[in-house]
């Protein structure tokens, strides 16, 4: 035992002193010297949540505008833009609600503004109103014809393409380019005024397409149309389940 004690200390004891010294110093620094918020992640998280919540708001939200601008708000409520927040077009308005006279939100007037949503883009969902800003009344500000708070066509549109731009453009490069919309759809006048309440007709049967594409079709439009035998050509399906009529795939 004595022998162990004699030879252990010199190497091991010296090391132990150093290591224990380091450990004690480290523990002292960590436990005593360093304040709790630096060590406790829960405290840091609570602080961070508070800091995050205290960040300034810049968009006031749709309720805030209605308090003063009730007339516009009521008008907008019934139109196509009813789901839009005021700040979608007018930009962040929290500062305006706090000091209405000094800070004014923007009123977008340049012609480039509305096309951000309404320019034709083939990736946009079908049925979303889109125009070609180059061809659509060039240089005229949008607001001169459309009230942005209750946007509708200024006059009853004559062309179907005024609203159904995507279809018109698709059809324009398809084999059906020569066909008027009215060849296949009857659109009542009321549809042009109130598009959602009265809908145009759509063909219902294979025989309708057959007027041009059946092998014995006699319609004068059908002179160069590809012919099929209605009896055995894709019999289970109606035509438009395979061919998109506005751009029929024939290749």
């Amino acid at each position: 035992m004595k022998k162990i004690l004699e030879r252990m200390p010199d190497a091991l004891a010296r090391l132990l002193v150093v290591f224990i010294g380091l450990a004690v110093a480290g523990a002292f620094v960590v436990i005593v010297l360093i304040p709790k918020p630096l060590k406790d992640v829960k405290i840091q998280w609570a602080d961070a949540v508070k800091r995050e919540q205290a960040k300034p708001v810049k968009y006031a939200g749709f309720h805030a505008c209605a308090e003063c601008h009730d007339k516009i708000y009521d008008k907008k409520k019934t139109g196509y833009h009813r789901d839009l927040s005021c700040e979608t077009c007018h930009g962040p308005a929290k500062a305006h609600t706090e000091d209405p006279d000094k800070v004014k939100p923007v009123i977008p007037q340049e012609r480039a503004f509305c096309p951000q949503c309404h320019a034709y883009n083939p990736s946009r969902p079908r049925g979303f109103p889109q125009i070609n800003p180059v061809a659509h009344n060039p240089l005229k500000p949008c607001a001169s014809c459309h009230n942005p708070h209750d946007p509708k066509p200024p006059t009853t549109p004559k062309e179907c393409s005024a609203c159904h731009g995507e279809i018109a453009r698709t059809k324009a490069v398809s084999h059906h380019v020569q066909l008027e919309c009215t060849v296949c759809h009857q659109a009542p006048q009321q549809h042009k005024i109130s598009p959602r309440s009265v809908k145009p007709t759509k063909p219902q049967t294979r025989e309708f397409c057959g007027k041009c594409h059946a092998k014995d079709a006699k319609d004068k439009l059908a002179r160069n149309a590809p012919r099929i035998d209605l009896a055995n050509h894709g019999e289970k399906y109606v035509c438009w389940q395979c061919h998109y009529p506005h751009s029929p795939e024939v290749e």
Partner: peptide
């Protein structure tokens, strides 16, 4: 906003 909008739809799409 992108300059000129795409007009005719690409048949390859």
């Amino acid at each position: 906003p992108e300059g000129v909008p795409e007009s005719a739809s690409d048949r390859e799409v």
